[in-house]
């Protein structure tokens, strides 16, 4: 028996919004410790890794490890039927071929349940090596989304250059060139507005705007985003989900031939 309950459907809606543009389907691996999903996009350029800890749920029961392959488009349709404040419960029997998603209004007067067929997805799991990143940037998630959106107008690629002075995002194309520099915040009044850079070594990497923009669909989940970079390895874009877990996107760099 698997049962996981969240106080507000809005969190699950936001999580799905954050992954459904990159992934058509995904396997939710459920265990005592929580729910995990790892999947590459169709082009195998990016990897999504979602972790939801069991202690972040209002109720969590997982008697036996369970892998639930789900069509994320179908799941999105079901979640559209929930009000943001509804309680949401995801339930499945051991070895079941369906999952039940149940919504309850705050006053318990409306209860709806939706059944969805599970899929047997033959997804390969990748081992993500421990990496000592040369630069780790924390910045407001909205600012990062804005920069990615703005630079996508100029080029398919964005160059991220991080030094101890700050982080620079650049793009150039037919229209011209664009450079956006963010300095590390001097006095941090509000932590959520801070730009914090931890640098071991300066790093310059090139990434596809299209994917960065897809990652920013996670912006409603977190006030801050963390970018971890190291020469010649994938960028990690991490959004923490308050008291529940995190979503990490890995993006393979573009390299000079």
């Amino acid at each position: 028996m698997f049962e996981a309950r969240l106080g507000q459907a809005t969190i699950l809606k936001k999580i799905l919004d954050a992954i459904k543009d990159l992934l058509n389907e995904g396997t939710f691996d459920c265990s005592d410790s929580g729910i995990q999903l790892q999947a590459m996009d169709n082009s195998h350029v990016s990897l999504v890794s979602l972790t939801l800890r069991s202690d972040g749920f209002d109720k969590f029961r997982c008697d036996r490890n369970l892998s639930m392959g789900m069509n994320l488009g179908s799941m999105a349709k079901i979640l559209k039927c929930a009000n943001n404040e509804d309680n949401v419960t995801i339930k499945a029997q051991d070895n079941a071929d369906t999952v039940t998603i149940m919504f309850e209004s705050a006053n318990q007067e409306k209860v709806s349940d939706y059944g969805m067929k599970l899929m047997n997805l033959d997804q390969e799991h990748l081992g993500i090596p421990e990496t000592d990143y040369s630069c780790v940037v924390r910045m407001p998630a909205m600012e990062f989304a804005r920069i990615c959106r703005d630079l996508a107008q100029f080029s398919e690629s964005v160059v991220i250059c991080c030094t101890k002075e700050g982080v620079k995002f650049s793009a150039s194309g037919d229209v011209g060139t664009a450079n956006i520099k963010l300095a590390q915040t001097g006095n941090v009044d509000k932590e959520e507005e801070a730009v914090i850079i931890e640098m071991q070594e300066p790093v310059t990497l090139t990434f596809a705007c299209r994917y960065l923009n897809a990652f920013t669909k996670a912006t409603p989940l977190s006030t801050q985003v963390q970018l971890s970079m190291c020469a010649d390895v994938p960028l990690v874009v991490e959004y923490r989900i308050n008291e529940l877990g995190h979503i990490r996107y890995y993006l393979a760099p573009k390299i000079e031939d």
């Binding site: 590459m40 990748l126 081992g127 994938p234």
Partner: peptide, 14 residues
């Protein structure tokens, strides 16, 4: 020339 790499060239299957 800039070439897009894939995740599979950095992370191994387990």
């Amino acid at each position: 020339n800039v070439r897009q790499t894939t995740i599979g060239s950095y992370f191994n299957k387990i």
